Computed example of a mutant assay.
Amino acid sequence: MTSAVIVAAGKGTRMKSSKGLSKQYIEIVGKPIILRTIEKFVKSEAIDEIIIVVSKKDEQYLKEKVLSKIKSGKPIKIAYGGKERFESSLNGINASSKDSDTILIHDAVRPFVKIEEIEKVAEKARKTGAAVLAVKSKDTVKLVSDGIINSTPDRDQVYLIQTPQGFSKKLLLDAYMDLINSDEIFMPTDDASVAERYGANVHVVEGSYENIKITTSSDIGFAESIIKSECGI
């Protein structure tokens, strides 16, 4: 059984709507960003259940304005976010069914992930234990310290990591428990880094450059153009 955890507990301090809504609830071409995201996982045959991790104060809004518009027999659960992003992920994982053995974790503000990409990550995660969606960097990347370039990694080896990220549920929970019980000061920026720290080999699944994370107001125009292109507008 495969569970999708959609993380939507962020406050979105860099971008809010005129109504004060966090970015995941902002409408683009007449539909909230998070609704577009959830719909992809509802449609994917690789996903058996969906857990949405939200701020407790947003729960009622999510139910009334988003979940009420989804017509599906697929189970959709709600979990509450933690102080840090990794705590929100862990809360979502813990809310998954006891029968779930594979977990996909996805950013609520990445609505343009393709259904086939979701299914490729799920398949790779089931086979290998850990897989992430990623694209090759188009730009030259520099490692910088104190404003000075230290080195230039080979661009062919540089990938921009996206979501979903898929894992064996047992592996990911073991990795999180190892982190929590450690005295090490380590703040993971994604779930893959938790698995990497634990010693897991995380495999890359080629994604698409359209799978953007909508973070600032400048991303809205690009998002609108993607939607209009998909709809032939």
Rank of each mutant, 00 (worst) to 15 (best):
L143K: 04
T163V: 06
I26C: 09
G12L: 02
I227H: 10
T189N: 13
P164H: 08
Y25E: 04
K169L: 06
S151F: 03
M177A: 04
E84I: 03
D99L: 09
L67P: 01
E27Y: 04
L172F: 07
I76V: 14
S100P: 01
E45W: 00
A95V: 01
I47F: 03
L35S: 08
A79R: 08
I34E: 01
M177F: 10
D139I: 02
Q157E: 15
N94R: 15
L35T: 08
M15E: 08
G199Q: 01
E84A: 10
E117C: 01
L67Q: 03
Y209F: 06
L21R: 13
G73Y: 03
D178V: 00
I214C: 08
T102C: 07
G10I: 06
V121F: 04
K124D: 06
Y61V: 02
N91Y: 07
L160K: 13
S22T: 14
Y198S: 09
K138V: 00
E196F: 14
K138T: 05
A122T: 05
V205L: 07
I105D: 15
Y159T: 07
S72R: 09
V54Q: 05
E119C: 00
V194N: 09
D183Y: 10
A125S: 15
K124Q: 11
V53P: 11
M1N: 11
L90S: 06
S3K: 03
